[in-house]
Amino acid sequence: MTSKAPIVVIEDDENDKLFIQEAIKSLEVINPLVFFSNGVEAIEYLIATLEPPLVILCDVNMPNMNGIELRQLIDLNAYLKMKSIPFVFLTTAADQGLVNQAYSMTIQGYFKKETTFALLKAQMSAIIDYWDKCLHPNSSFND
């Protein structure tokens, strides 16, 4: 890993949260993980923090503010939009309508959560490795 920016995970299911946390931990990722249970908590953090996250991994179905609503709010907020934070849906809700709606909102990925630890670990590795190496407005160009 070259980036030490936090990885934001927005997930309301405690079992899924632990599963994701263990998968990322087993990859020996150095980035801190920052968890939120809903979009309201996440948006408050994203507005308050100065350091843009490496990537946001967001569930679709959550209480208070779901993932679709959160992404819409980020796109409407000029400050957050300028942070250019990669936004990826990681969810069990996978149907054509949701995928179409999500991609109409400038997301960078939509993944159905894997159901085994080995597959989830591989999925997390691919997502994190991609965003660690991908150049985007938050990249460090001094290296």
Rank of each mutant, 00 (worst) to 15 (best):
M1K: 10
M1Q: 12
S3C: 07
K4Q: 12
K4D: 15
K4N: 15
A5N: 14
P6K: 02
I7A: 03
V8E: 07
V8D: 01
V9N: 00
E11Q: 03
D12A: 03
D12N: 10
D13F: 06
D16V: 07
D16R: 04
K17L: 03
K17W: 01
L18M: 07
I20D: 01
I20P: 00
I20Q: 00
Q21E: 15
E22H: 04
A23N: 01
I24M: 04
I24W: 04
K25N: 14
K25Q: 12
K25P: 04
L27I: 05
I30P: 10
I30N: 14
N31F: 08
N31I: 00
N31C: 09
N31K: 05
P32R: 03
L33K: 09
V34N: 12
V34L: 11
V34R: 13
F35E: 09
F36T: 07
F36G: 03
S37E: 11
G39I: 05
G39D: 14
E41V: 02
I43E: 06
L46F: 04
L46A: 14
I47D: 14
A48W: 06
L50Y: 10
E51Q: 15
P53N: 06
V55I: 10
I56W: 01
C58D: 02
C58Q: 06
D59Y: 07
V60K: 00
P63Q: 10
P63A: 15
P63I: 10
N64V: 15
M65W: 08
M65V: 12
M65P: 13
I68E: 01
E69D: 14
E69V: 03
E69T: 13
L70I: 05
R71M: 09
Q72E: 10
I74M: 12
I74H: 02
D75A: 11
D75K: 11
D75H: 05
N77W: 11
N77F: 07
A78P: 13
A78C: 03
L80E: 10
L80R: 13
K81F: 09
S84Q: 10
S84R: 08
I85F: 01
I85G: 02
I85R: 01
I85T: 05
P86L: 08
F87E: 00
V88Y: 02
F89I: 02
F89S: 03
L90F: 08
A93V: 04
A94V: 12
A94C: 12
D95M: 01
Q96H: 08
G97A: 05
V99F: 07
A102F: 00
Y103A: 02
Y103M: 05
Q108G: 06
G109K: 00
F111C: 03
F111W: 07
K112P: 08
K112G: 07
K113M: 11
E114P: 05
T115P: 09
T116M: 09
T116N: 12
T116W: 08
F117M: 12
L119N: 15
L120R: 04
L120I: 09
L120T: 02
K121F: 10
A122R: 11
A122Q: 10
Q123L: 14
S125N: 15
A126D: 11
I127D: 02
I128V: 11
I128H: 04
Y130A: 00
K133V: 04
C134I: 11
C134Q: 11
C134F: 04
L135D: 03
L135P: 10
H136T: 03
H136E: 06
N138F: 06
N138Q: 13
S139L: 08
S139D: 04
S139I: 08
S139V: 12
S140D: 15
F141A: 09
N142L: 12
D143C: 11
